[in-house]
Design a protein around this nucleic acid. Structure first.
Length: 439
DNA sequence: CACTAGTGCAA
DNA sequence: TATTGCACTAGTG
């Protein structure tokens, strides 16, 4: 079998129009694992960085690949990144290539209909807002909107940004009873967002030959090991609101097939349970409990049956906060409580889940010592900034030190699952349709 | 046309 | 002053 060597091989497969098997080395993926925060892993950058060439002849790019490979594979070995490169990132190349080539079928007629519906409702809301404001202005301009709300209508203003008072959703939520215009603006914002970002944008990205969107899945797009998606971003299609769910219905299956969706449940909290070895967390998951309800019961000291929606949502915010590297201010903002109250929630959490606290402290300690953190599978993120003398900077990187191993381990596990599923499809052990519709 | 700020969608 | 992204609009240069 031929050996394959290249940079951004996943991208090049589209030009070659073929899948890839056998011995593969991708210098861009190797560079990404060594430096996951970098945006660009193109050949010219790597030649400059690893071969110390300040000028080179583009026609001879290929000649630089072999020396680059030698250097990079040595570094990968020395950094303990072999498993992640050879068992995760490289096997994922054909998986992501196939996903891109395959694409997802879009019901354009449905989106046109939805666009017309949203257009009518947006126009109506717009007129009602101008009427209530007593003036016409550009509703999509935060600057103009803040003038109307906080100067003309004299509503109480809150957060200030660099350029003026914020008109963000959380600010407007708090003003919803102050003036009838506020609710209308929130409704307008929701519909305008959905229409401009999804309903009207997605049809323009549908390939006329295939009737599908062929999203790019960027394997080097994040600092933690996740994949990112663009043109369109299929990783942020709405689901939370009822209006948003209408957009998901535009993604449809081929006739005679089902579109299935597979996801791990609470994967990041499960990883936290594993990494911390906190017995209470482990047993909660082993018993299949509602983890947020259980957390609420623990930290607020009430029986599980008495946990209401408010307590559960607060506990859920605490659980998310733990994964993000919690701060009392951050928690207070998302739960609309004072930082002092948030502090009590956090203290209570750590009192009831002491191994989680130990894990966090140990992780930060190690990060300071080694200047990197790593996932369960060895993926690394370097964070020398954790030594910063600026407390804000330091705190920010301490949160990164907590979050990166958790988010990154989840990414590793999901990628391994994608590779296994792809193998099953390739081996035709399933009834999954495994030929892109345009070939 | 490139860039930033503000905003908001998802995991 | 909570992690990771992408993309839209307004506004500036």
């Amino acid at each position: 079998m031929l050996k394959k060597l290249g940079s951004y091989i996943q991208r090049d497969l589209h030009f070659l129009n073929c899948k890839i098997k056998g011995d593969v080395f991708d210098v861009s993926l190797a560079s990404y694992l060594l430096n996951p925060e970098r945006q660009n892993h193109s050949l010219d950058i790597l030649i400059g960085e690893y071969l110390n060439k300040t000028s080179f002849i583009p026609q001879k790019y290929a000649g630089y690949l072999f020396p680059l490979k030698s250097i990079l594979e040595e570094r990968i070995k020395n950094e303990g990144l072999e498993f992640v490169l050879y068992n995760i990132e490289i096997p994922l190349i054909p998986v992501l290539y196939s996903m891109e080539k395959w694409g997802i079928k879009v019901d354009k007629e449905y989106l046109k209909q939805l666009s017309d519906e949203f257009c009518e409702r947006i126009k109506k809301l717009e007129e009602e807002i101008y009427e209530l404001a007593g003036t016409r202005f550009n509703l999509n301009s935060p600057k103009q909107l803040s003038e109307v709300l906080f100067e003309r209508l004299k509503l109480p203003s809150g957060k200030k940004g660099k350029t003026g008072y914020s008109t963000s959703s959380s600010v407007l939520q708090n003003l919803i009873n102050a003036h009838p215009i506020v609710r209308k603006i929130l409704q307008y914002r929701e519909l305008y967002k959905l229409k401009s970002t999804y309903v009207d944008a997605i049809p323009n990205l549908v390939n006329p030959q295939t009737g599908r969107v062929h999203t790019k899945f960027n394997p080097t797009g994040t600092a933690t090991g996740r994949i990112s998606s663009s043109e369109p971003n299929l990783q942020n299609i709405p689901i939370k609101s009822e209006e948003g769910r209408k957009i998901r219905r535009a993604f449809v299956s081929e006739d005679g097939y089902f579109l299935v969706s597979l996801d791990y449940s609470q994967i990041e909290l499960r990883i936290m349970a594993h990494l911390s070895q906190e017995p209470k967390l482990i047993s909660a998951f082993q018993k299949g409990e509602d983890i947020h309800r259980r957390t609420a019961s623990e930290i607020f000291g009430v029986p599980e049956e008495e946990v209401d929606d408010l307590l559960r949502s607060r506990a859920k915010a605490v659980n998310f906060g733990i994964i993000y590297g919690i701060s009392s201010f951050g928690l207070s903002e998302t739960v609309s409580i004072t930082p002092e109250e948030a502090e009590k929630f956090i203290d209570s959490y750590f009192k009831h889940y002491p191994r989680v606290k130990l894990f966090i402290d140990k992780t930060i300690h190690e990060a300071r010592e080694k200047l990197y953190v790593k996932t369960l599978f060895g993926r690394k993120r370097y964070i020398p900034e954790i030594k910063s003398i600026n407390k804000q900077v330091r705190n920010a990187y301490e949160r990164i030190a907590i979050n990166a191993p958790i988010q990154g381990t989840a990414a590793d596990i999901i990628k391994l699952a994608m590779i296994e599923i792809y193998k099953e499809i390739e081996n035709k052990n399933t009834q999954v349709k495994n030929t892109p519709s345009n070939s």
